[in-house]
Amino acid sequence: MKDIKETFSSPINKNNPITVQMLGICSALAVTSKLEPSIVMGIALTAVVAFSNVILSLLRNTIPNRIRIIVQLVIVAALVTIVNEILKAYAYDVSKQLSVFVGLIITNCIVMGRLEAFALGNKPWPAFVDGVGNGLGYAIILVIVGFFRELLGSGSLFGFQIIPNKIYEWGYENNGLMILPPMAMIIIACIIWIQKSKQS
């Protein structure tokens, strides 16, 4: 039981997929200019990692070693297709904003990395927990970045204005720089900085 807990909690902070393992930065940073798409992206990725981990873990004794990459890609691609269709049906606006980045979950290194490193050698339940943990670790970073970028860049959260008009009258202005993609990198660098100086 303790192992399960450890499997779940370690990727959220100590072994975070983005800031420590350096995985899965690719497809996600461009979607974090607003909070809402970041949350949807986090949920979508968590679902894909968790279920692909379970499926691969169930199949792990039947897959020949040489073709495992192809099998993994097919499992992930099928799950991502399902997620994409669900998003299109129930959250069309967000799915438009995320555009190609839902499809890019397929090549997200977190998914492949967890499949290779964990699901191939573990039972379905721990694999599921590991998938959820890693997905959440990823989602937390996305939400932090999305929060700061939307708050400082547009003065709103979830599209509602947060910073009162009074402050704008005093001369405050939205920082247009925060909307530009490179700022996501700088915020992540700051998160890494804080995390590392805390640990050492």
Partner: peptide, 12 residues
């Protein structure tokens, strides 16, 4: 990693 991110941002 940290400084690599910042450099990427500046190049961006």
């Amino acid at each position: 990693l940290g400084i690599a991110f910042i450099i990427t941002a500046l190049m961006g």
